[in-house]
């Protein structure tokens, strides 16, 4: 415990300085490598991730982080601010500067204004030009996301969903944590689906599409609420595209699935892990994880777009 705390303090206090970077790389070596995911023609290839990893031919990269749960302060992670800072420091240490930073929800634990403010301040530490967000269910408690949207909303549409283009890749941010019904899962709703259909209608099938939302857009484990009721309809609009990548958070662990040209990923949390689907009585913080082992469960995702293949290479880096 003491060793871990010291490591955290040294790693976060010197962000951006030479000493901090050395410390950071030392931590990486101490923690062991993460995994580099290469997606080529719809097939995933994994490589151990080290500091020397490069993806040749990448036209740009972006980083996904998720589930920071600012405000959570119990086992197994009483310092969610510190672990988020470590994730952001890793982003700043990337050799190639990411085009943007994507947070796939549960910024906060209880939707409190002060939690949002802390998260917002921390995210400014990442040296990226743009930051994109979608809310998690923890970000919309009691106010249907008013506090979230006032700070992080893209304000393209009243419902909060949005799209943008980056180097020929079409990105879509969806919201599936509002207007949830008793006994149901995540929900997109008719209005958002109609917008999505229209948003995608003008694109050629060769356009790579990246869709992101907080809750999984596939029935990952409905018994624990890990899915979205009307995701099937959304996916029906996406099947004609040659390369579709769906990025989600919510479950605090990596799960993947390939379905035709659509590849699904869920990201780790920067705060705490949850059990594997069906392992134990329910989801929630995996409290048995010791402080020394926590870093192995946390992480960031670095996605590099390789223009030649029209596909995405996804790397997953364990937070050291």
């Amino acid at each position: 415990m003491q060793d871990y705390d010291n490591m955290m303090d040294e790693g976060t206090a010197d962000i951006g300085m030479a000493g901090g970077r050395r410390q950071f790389l030392k931590c990486m070596a101490w923690a062991g490598a993460g995994t580099l995911w290469l997606m080529k023609s719809g097939v995933l290839q994994a490589q151990p991730l080290g500091e020397a990893n490069t993806v040749k031919g990448a036209t740009f990269s972006f980083v996904q982080i998720s589930d920071s749960h600012i405000g959570f302060h119990k086992a197994p992670n009483p310092d969610v601010v510190g672990t988020l800072r470590r994730s952001l420091a890793m982003i700043n240490a990337q050799k190639t500067r990411p085009a943007f930073l994507l947070h796939t929800g549960d910024l906060t634990h209880l939707s409190k204004p002060e939690e949002f403010d802390i998260l917002n301040g921390l995210m400014q530490e990442a040296r990226v030009e743009r930051r994109f967000y979608v809310p998690g269910e923890h970000d919309v408690i009691g106010d249907n996301g008013a506090e979230f949207f006032s700070r992080f909303g893209e304000k393209q549409h009243a419902g909060g969903w949005y799209s943008f283009d980056q180097h020929g890749v079409h990105f879509v941010g969806l919201i599936n944590v509002l207007n949830l019904k008793a006994g149901g899962l995540g929900s997109l709703g008719a209005d958002q689906l109609a917008w999505l259909k229209n948003d995608l209608a003008g694109l050629s099938a060769e356009t790579p599409v990246v869709v992101f939302a907080h809750m999984p857009l596939w029935p990952l484990y409905p018994q624990w609420g890990w899915g979205t009721d009307d995701s099937g309809e959304a996916l029906s609009y996406l099947r004609r595209f040659g390369s579709v990548t769906v990025l989600n958070g919510h479950i605090h662990q990596i799960q993947q699935k390939v379905e035709g040209n659509i590849t699904f990923y869920t990201a780790r949390s920067t705060a705490y892990p949850q059990p594997a689907p069906g392992d134990g009585p329910g989801p929630g913080p995996l409290q048995s994880v010791t402080a020394e082992a926590l870093h192995r469960y946390l992480g960031i995702r670095d996605v590099r777009h390789v223009r030649t293949g029209g596909a995405l290479a996804v790397t997953e880096e364990v937070l050291s």
Binding site: E137, L180, K181, A182, G183, G184, L185, G225
Partner: peptide, 12 residues
């Protein structure tokens, strides 16, 4: 009176 958890709606 049916009730649920608004953020984990499978809880009824």
């Amino acid at each position: 009176y049916t009730y649920y958890c608004s953020i984990h709606p499978m809880m009824v």
